[in-house]
Design a protein around this nucleic acid. Structure first.
Lengths: 129, 129
DNA sequence: CGGGATCCAGAACGATACTG
DNA sequence: CAGTATCGTTCTGGATCCCG
């Protein structure tokens, strides 16, 4: 039943660029979006505060990711016309709603990663023979 | 509580390359892994059959993705020494176990994508002003 | 049949400098 | 403060040819 979604799009000839899974995963798959969403899940945050809290992200990437998330309606961008300007980012209801399925994936990753790491080491040892 | 995993890794100084979420999402985020897992969830499959069923994937990418999934222990690679050789790929228990959290994400994507698409269109219209 | 090796295009990403 | 602009790098994925 998991595959049905994809096959339905396949059969419909809608093109895979329009497939919901493809679109969602393209966003989640990039390097920073999830980090940003997770930070904003704790509390709304200003640009520079986010920049400090998300480790090693460049201003450029923070800007681009925030724009994409805002475009998708996952993040709300609020500008306060102070001087100098301050901008606060927060999760929309849509943004918060993804925390649920995301939580399941995070839990899976946590539980299974030791196993995965072990598999990789074993695989790489065989490869070295 | 979702962020805790990441912050724990942050605090532990383990380096983000060792973070379970990063590792799992790097795999799921690439263009084909999920497709392949979903196909194999239906039934075990040989290389050329997979190549036909996963739309538009190149042999190169199919090979690379299958190797990564095999390395992680998500996929089992079985070689039958026939002539010409035949190789069957199937999901391991680990590979099947990710179908559960993945299902949650797929459901979310299906339910929310129309909303996301609408948000994008609206955003792009404002941008054009 | 099931790949491996090589080359190449484009996208993602990073560093730095600059701006209202 | 909150970005933009530009450049260079790295990484992903596709095309093609080759191999046992």
């Amino acid at each position: 039943m998991l595959i049905d979604t994809w096959q339905a799009w396949d059969a419909a000839g809608g093109g895979f660029e329009q497939c919901p899974i493809r679109n969602v995963l393209d966003r989640l798959g990039d390097k920073w979006s999830i980090l940003i969403v997770m930070r904003l899940a704790i509390k709304p945050c200003r640009f520079s505060e986010l920049h400090r809290q998300v480790p090693d992200i460049s201003k450029r990437m923070l800007t681009l990711n925030l724009r994409n998330l805002t475009r998708d309606g996952m993040v709300l961008r609020t500008v306060y016309p102070t001087k100098p300007p301050s901008v606060e980012y927060s999760l929309t209801p849509l943004g918060r709603s993804i925390l649920v399925p995301l939580g399941g994936l995070v839990q899976w990753a946590d539980e299974r990663f030791p196993e995965i790491r072990g598999n990789r080491e074993q695989f790489d040892r065989q490869d070295a023979d």
